[in-house]
Structures are given as structure tokens and as C-alpha cells.
Write a protein that binds this DNA or RNA. Structure first.
Lengths: 339, 339
DNA sequence: GTTAGCACTCTATTGAAATGAGTGCTAGTG
DNA sequence: CACTAGCACTCATTTCAATAGAGTGCTAAC
């Protein structure tokens, strides 16, 4: 793999990404002055094809990069894309103080990514709260109470509950107190049997209600951990020429609509910034899409992921920079939000 | 408008809805045995065209209904479509006990409608809660509190708030009590100046905090009243032949993505079951779509709307039945949920 | 009032020819 | 030996005309 081959491959990738048309030897000679004639480039291209880095849609067409070609480009040839002032500004503007809820912020990250790239964007998580920070009953009326749970990451969940008519406000206050003192700071994954036993002992009269509460709490944490999938700007991807055909659109959208597929694909990604190109994704029907993802963090721990889904013909340099920048910015923003 | 003309128009509408192809005189004579020859039907069709009920895409094509034609069909010709057992069963199944949050239920209504029709579906609202049922502060840690607001429709909203470090749990308890007693059951639209004055007088030491709380409450109600728009199953509409062309899809989706356009269109609909056909919608770019909507209710009051958005070539009978059934079922379900 | 028949219109399909982009190979050059 | 000019060849795409087909409107006959 000599220097010139690299330059030819890079030229093919760049041009194909920009035009969506197979790239011929002549085009390369003209646009990317390598100082050699088309014939020489043709020879190089023949070599690159043999190496499996580029391919020909049909005999008399130019070449397009293969998955392997993109991979080589991303790993070895690509120069880091420097985000412009305006790009960074745009991102910063899109996160406003007004966004009070974590979900809104995550959703906005995906939306912004999509707008800036014209690809689809997706966000996972956040997996917020592993332990209970505060748990509190509010008595609404006889037979009805509101359970409010605040997790350590200051995410609030609530649930209306039916309670026995006999339970009074005082009872609820007492229950809240006991639950708080016993459960505060305890990771939901390893609640001790003893802890539960203690709670039941202390509140033996409201055994049934306490059981219901614990069920609800468990459910809240479980659904929280299932890492909800946020999709952003499905519309923008229609601007890509590979989706001029409706059946393609339908195919991709039907995959995206099943959140679990995306979740699986994304969960295979390593932490940090990562790219998965075309067939590297273990899912048929996703073979001509690429996934660029980055994890975001809270208190040094990975809590979720943001990413871009686009055709394999993707501007990887820009995509990587954007996803990276957004993930960092998102982490900062969340940290400030929760403080 | 004699009987035979009606039958011809009905045949044209039905056939065109089923096939998406312009309908010729011969087709009608063959499939819908009116007992007359194609030539006679041609004469009738010429009349119908003059009346503006049908039109010809080009000289040597069959006829398709005009907006006016659909309108006449819907108002005068259409027979009520009886939902099958399976349809009703399907709808009932799609609403499960598991759905605890109102939003989930609304979203599900739209999703179900879309699945059953292969059109896009949309839901508005619900406009839940006009007054405060309960308002409560939870003290989390110095400088931080959680404000929980329950509306009369038992919809819960919450917001983390920064509070002065000096404020204690006792203070918050007191504030909660005062706010509750003063605001319980008061419609947010007509909070009296006096009421506010009373509150400020009683809590004159926490003047600033109270101001912040009232701002938050107002904001919560405002965003609630803005009637959030839920879209369902955008994917399904891609099955319609009129959306084989991506530009069409892009056009519709870009309209749907702006929630406010849909909201405006829907808010022009009368309460109950209603149809708006093609150009009857006051929005360019929506001229070849129809909107079938029904309001849903809570305690006898209209709180929101569900509907179908499809091409004007729509199976109106079925669409109306489904929207009607869903709206009724949704009302019932909500009533039971909130009890 | 209804219908058979027919000329006419216009779109969609088909197929052949022209176009053009691009390649691979060969032979010649510094 | 590396490079390049030249050329024959391939194949998708475009173009164009001819054809087929669906459907109409009109007229004359029943």
C-alpha cells in the first residue's frame, strides 16, 4: 500500500461521498492533481480493487469504495475534521437553559445531530439513577396516593397508586420515613434481604401496601434501565440520494421503528467514539448503513450513547467530529443540570 | 342528481379508493352491475364531470373523484361501515392495563389507528387539568426542592427548583399548605388578584420563592394547554401508492413534523366526528390529504382529538368508523384510568 | 332513453439506435 | 521500469419512433 494508492483511495472516497456517483480515473486525474495520467490511476485502481478496497457496480462504471475501503479510509487516511465556529455555536445554541427535563435534552441532541448532518440520529439512555435518593408518598384523597421517587441522578418518577381506604396521611408519612431511611442511597441491584425484612418488620401492618410500593419502585428502575431509544430527524435522511427510493426508506424506517434493534446495534459499540460501517453491523437490512456513536457520561460513568445513522457513503470525518462534540457537550450539560 | 348518477359516483369513488387507478366506464359496467351499457355510463359520467364531482386526469383516462365528489359521497352516499369483531377486538387488545400514563394511552391510540388503516394518525391533547388539585414541595437538600403539582384530572407534573439555602423543610411545608388551601380547585385561568395578594401576604417572607413557584405552575399549565401533538405510524402511510414518490413523503412529513400546523388544522374541526377533504383544509401542501377526526371526552368535556391523515383517496367509511370507535373507547379508558 | 360502433386522443410500453462514461490492454517513450 | 497515449470494448442511460391499449365523445340506429 504505497503512498499513491492511498491518495487514490482517499480521492475515491471523498469524491464518492460528495457526489454519490461512481468515480472514474479521469475525474480523479482532473480534480485531485496527483500528477499522473488517468491510465496510471486506472492501474492503481485495478490494484485497489484486487485488494478489496473498492468495487465496480458494473463494467463500464467508475469505482466506489467497499466497506473495507471505507474502513481503511477511516482508520488510516482520514484527516480530523475541524468543526467550524458556526457549527460549535449552532450546537451550543441548540441546548438552551429552558430544557429542564433530561429527556428533552437527549432528544434535542439527536435532533441537532440530524439537522447538521442530514442523516438520522439516535440517542440511547440515559441510564440515570441506580439508587433511591428520596421516596415520598403524597396523600391525595382516601384510597388514592401519589408515590414520588427521586433517584440519585435527580430524575423524578411518579405513579398514582390505589391504597386501602383505611390508610391515613399519617400512615403514609410514616411509611415514607421508613422507606427513606432504609432505602436512601441503596443500589437497587443489591437490596439486601435483610433490608426488606427490616422494612416489612417495621411496617408489618401495611405489609401489602409496602409490597406494592416496592413493586412499583422496581418497575420504575427497570424501565429506566431499559435505555429508551430517542430517534431524531427521520425526515432529514430523505435528503440523501440513496433514499430516493421509497422501499429503501420503508426498510430503514421499519428497522428504526423497532427500538430494540437499534438498541442492540448500539450496545455492541465500545465506549468512546466508534464507527461501524455497513456489513460490520450485525443486522441484515442494515448492511448499507453506517453507525457513528459516542458515549456520554455522568460523574465519570457511561450513562448513554448518541449517534448518527446514515448510508455507508457518509462523511465520516465530519460525522465523527460532530458526534464527538455533541457527546462531550451533552455530558457537560447534564452535569450542570443535575449538579 | 338521479338515482343512477348516485350509483355511478359511488362506484367511481369505491373503485378508485380500492385501486388508485382512474375508473373507466367499462370497468363500472363490468364490476358494478347497474344494468346499463358503458355508453350510458359515459353519458352519466359526462354529467357528473360537468357538476364538478369527478374529473379526468387526461383525455384518454378514466375518471377520479374530485374533492367535491368525495364530499358528496361522504355526506350522501356512503353506507355506514360496520367494524368487524376482529377490528374491535384488535382495538381493545391494544389498550392494556399496563398503560399507566395518559400520554402512553394517547400515543397508543394514534399508533393503533395508523396500523389499522395504513394512514398516518394523530392525537391531540389531552387538555387535562384546569385547576390545581394538590401542590406540594419536597425538600431534597439545602438549596434544592422538588415541586409536585397534581391537576384536577390527576395529571402529575414536577419540577426541580433551586431555593434559597435558608429555607427549611418546615418552611416548605408551610408554603405547601398555604398554596394548597388558597389554590385548590381554583381554575388557573381566573386566579383572582386577591388570591395572589393573600398568598403573598401570608408568605411575605418567602415572597421571591412564591413568585418562582407561581411562574412554574403557570408554565406547567400553559405547556399542558398547548395540546401536545402525538403522531403515530408515519411508516404505514408509505404503503399508500400516492407516496411512492419520495418528494411527496418529504412534503407531508415536513408538515407533520411541525406540530403547530397539525394543531391548527385539527383545531378547526368541530367536536364529534368530522371529515375534512383535500382542499377543504386551509393549508397549502395539504390539499391532497384528508383529515378524519373525532373528539374524546372526560367528564363530558372535550379534552382532545384523535384522527387520521391520509390521501384524499381514502376509505372514508372505514376511517370514520375506526376513528369514532377509538375515540369512544379512548374516552372510556381514560375515565376508568382516572376514576 | 339506450346502446352499438367507430374515430380520435393520449399515455404507457417497447425496442432499436445513439450516446457516453469508463475500463483494460498494448505498445511506445524517457 | 514506470508511465502514458491510444484504442477497442462494455454496458448503463438516453432518445426516439412505433405500437398497443385504455378510454372517451359522438353519431346513428333501436
Amino acid at each position: 500500500m504505497d503512498e499513491r494508492k492511498k491518495r487514490v483511495l482517499a480521492a475515491i472516497v471523498q469524491d464518492y461521498v460528495a457526489t454519490a456517483e461512481p468515480v472514474g480515473s479521469r475525474t480523479i486525474a482532473r480534480k485531485y492533481n496527483l500528477g499522473v495520467s488517468p491510465a496510471t490511476i486506472r492501474n492503481e485502481m485495478a490494484d485497489l480493487e484486487e485488494m478489496g478496497l473498492i468495487e465496480q457496480p458494473h463494467t463500464s462504471a467508475g469505482r466506489i469504495p467497499s466497506d473495507k475501503g471505507y474502513r481503511y479510509f477511516v482508520d488510516c487516511l482520514m484527516e480530523k475534521y475541524a468543526l467550524g465556529r458556526d457549527d460549535e455555536e449552532y450546537i451550543r445554541q441548540s441546548f438552551t437553559r429552558k430544557m429542564q427535563e433530561i429527556e428533552t435534552v437527549i432528544q434535542q441532541s439527536a435532533a441537532t445531530l440530524s439537522q447538521m448532518t442530514n442523516y438520522a440520529a439516535v440517542a440511547l439512555g440515559p441510564q440515570v439513577g441506580k439508587s433511591i435518593y428520596r421516596i415520598q408518598f403524597l396523600h391525595l384523597e382516601p384510597g388514592k396516593a401519589l408515590l414520588v421517587v427521586v433517584t440519585d441522578a435527580k430524575v423524578v418518577e411518579h405513579r398514582l397508586m390505589e391504597i386501602p381506604l383505611s390508610i391515613t396521611s399519617m400512615d403514609l408519612e410514616r411509611i415514607s420515613e421508613v422507606l427513606n431511611s432504609r432505602l436512601h442511597g441503596v443500589s437497587m441491584e443489591r437490596i439486601q434481604r435483610e433490608t426488606l425484612a427490616d422494612i416489612y418488620r417495621e411496617l408489618h401492618r401495611q405489609r401489602q401496601l409496602v409490597g406494592a410500593v416496592l413493586d412499583v419502585v422496581e418497575e420504575l428502575f427497570r424501565s429506566n434501565q431499559e435505555n429508551r431509544v430517542f430517534l431524531g430527524g427521520m425526515l432529514n435522511i430523505l435528503n440523501q440520494p440513496e433514499f430516493r427510493d421509497v422501499s429503501r426508506v420503508k426498510n430503514l424506517l421499519s428497522i428504526l421503528e423497532q427500538g430494540n434493534v437499534i438498541r442492540e446495534l448500539m450496545q455492541e459499540q465500545p465506549s468512546g467514539l466508534a464507527v461501524r460501517i455497513g456489513g460490520e453491523n450485525r443486522h441484515e437490512g442494515f448492511a448499507d448503513c453506517s453507525l457513528v456513536t459516542a458515549t456520554y457520561h455522568l460523574d465519570g460513568e457511561v450513562v448513554g450513547m448518541v449517534g448518527i445513522i446514515g448510508p455507508t457513503r457518509m462523511d465520516y470525518a465530519r460525522a465523527l467530529s460532530l458526534v464527538d462534540y455533541i457527546s462531550v457537550h451533552l455530558s457537560d450539560f447534564l452535569a450542570k443540570m443535575i449538579k
